[in-house]
């Protein structure tokens, strides 16, 4: 009984402000005749119409697929490259200016080059997302590989661990916290790249939906698109957080113990 009560208060503490804000939006926008701020009630009505399920399947799903595949490709490429560069310091040092340059490239400045090479279809969108997510993860992976504790390296050498076992049980797990930190940055950049590529690329997807609604002055539809985008961005981040919590459970325990010892 008291436990449920505690859970309820905990949830209430986190939710009261968001709920209040949405309520305020509802109340303030009710009866609004402003072009830009249509009543929230109207938006929610249209939301149900539009997104269950026609545009969910036509626009939201393709967007998510592009995001997941682009981010996935970027992640895989970055980790493999990062393991190589992290293990060969001379190569890493030589290529550092190039990598820094790639990371500094704002995704929007990439669009002309990508569109020139790959057109405006899915390829361009997915590869742009992959490209954007690669560099922050790559740099962090290198950092992570370098930060492997020298004592553990000696353990690996002393117990004659083979190359594969060293990578699988030592280097990759040790670099994982850093890899995830990079991936979190990369994820939000991927979402931006997804929206950008869809705005300039071939029709379809959430970015296109929002921009197209605006062009046709269907502001209510545009608002529903924004809400969907917000939900997807939030869901992506939460999913990522869950995966991170699972993979890095050891890390939290480990650092906590270290802090306690201090």
């Amino acid at each position: 009984m008291s436990r449920t009560l505690r859970v309820v208060t905990a949830v209430a503490r986190e939710l009261w402000l968001p709920v209040l804000l949405v309520a305020a939006w509802w109340w303030l926008s009710a009866g609004s005749t402003s072009l830009y701020w249509p009543p929230l009630a109207e938006i929610t009505d249209r939301f149900v119409d539009l997104w269950f399920f026609e545009h969910l399947v036509e626009d939201a799903l393709p967007s998510v697929i592009r995001l997941v595949s682009g981010f996935g490709i970027g992640f895989a490429v970055a980790v493999v490259l990062g393991l190589v560069l992290g293990s060969v310091p001379a190569l890493e040092d030589a290529t550092r200016p190039l990598v820094e340059f790639m990371r500094a490239l704002p995704s929007v400045a990439l669009l002309p080059i990508m569109m020139l090479l790959l057109g405006t279809d899915d390829d361009m969108k997915v590869i742009t997302i992959a490209f954007v997510s690669t560099w922050p993860i790559l740099l962090n992976t290198v950092e992570g590989v370098r930060s492997v504790d020298p004592v553990l390296r000696q353990v690996a050498a002393g117990y004659r661990l083979g190359a594969w076992h060293r990578i699988r049980y030592l280097v990759v797990p040790a670099a994982m916290p850093q890899i995830f930190a990079g991936a979190r940055v990369a994820l939000s950049m991927s979402v931006v790249a997804m929206v950008l590529t869809e705005m300039v690329g071939s029709p379809g997807g959430l970015g296109y939906f929002v921009l197209d609604s605006q062009r046709t002055f269907d502001i209510v539809a545009m608002w529903t698109g924004l809400i969907v985008l917000g939900l997807i961005g939030y869901a992506a981040n939460k999913t990522f957080g869950l995966v991170e919590a699972r993979v890095l459970a050891w890390h939290r325990g480990h650092t906590k113990q270290k802090e306690d010892q201090r």
Partner: peptide, 10 residues
Amino acid sequence: DYSRSLMPWL
């Protein structure tokens, strides 16, 4: 250094 010679992820 036991705290560094064991792998915390295993």
